[in-house]
Design a protein around this nucleic acid. Structure first.
Lengths: 99, 99
DNA sequence: ACATCAATTAGATAATTAGCTAATTATCTC
DNA sequence: GAGATAATTAGCTAATTATCTAATTGATGT
């Protein structure tokens, strides 16, 4: 849970998630969209992976990143729900209890 | 926005918000619930204040902390909404804007 | 005014984080 | 196998964060 919010606390990482919303992208494609070095982007990807917000797939020399929508949804709506608003984690979401 | 997620990335701070959910509490009351020093708690309170998640009120020698539900709701559901889920601000949520 | 209590600020330190360049690994093409 | 390309890891620095103890501020009560 902490990992998810930590991942979301960086604007670059939030942007990456936004890009992935419209479909999977390679590490290079994602990196090209930001004014930082590739290794730095790689570190951001690691933060997102540690939070479970993205998953990877290898395709030749490339690594394709996918958005794990359900993890994001569960984290945000789950937490929001604990505060009484936004309640309704989707028609049928499994109830996972915190760390 | 980053400030909100950064504030939420710490378990102690999330706990504090949870405690405030059931009503306002003094700094000391909140601090007593955690195994860290008061100055450390004060720093956590500052992080929450910087994010706009809590506001304070003075009462004699005490400082009372209040949860700013609307800010939390706006941040979480606003972001969730940008991803296409959770877009329903609760039965009757007042739209209070700030920051 | 003085002592006391609540809370914060000041100052220090250890751990973490974001960023870089350079080196490495994995894969593909010839 | 040699070279080229994509991505990551290694190793570093600067900045930030979490935590502590000690000192300070502000309010109340005697």
């Amino acid at each position: 849970m902490s990992d998810v919010f930590k991942a979301l606390s960086d604007p670059t990482r939030r942007e990456v998630l936004h890009m992935l919303k419209s479909g999977p992208r390679s590490a290079g494609e994602l990196a090209d969209a930001f004014p930082v070095s590739r290794p730095t982007m790689s570190a951001h990807f690691n933060a997102l992976k540690a939070a479970g917000l993205v998953s990877t797939e290898k395709a030749g020399k490339s690594v394709i990143y996918h958005l794990n929508v359900s993890v994001l949804e569960e984290a945000l709506l789950g937490f929001a729900g604990a505060f009484g608003f936004g309640t309704r984690p989707a028609p049928d979401a499994p109830s996972e209890r915190k760390e």
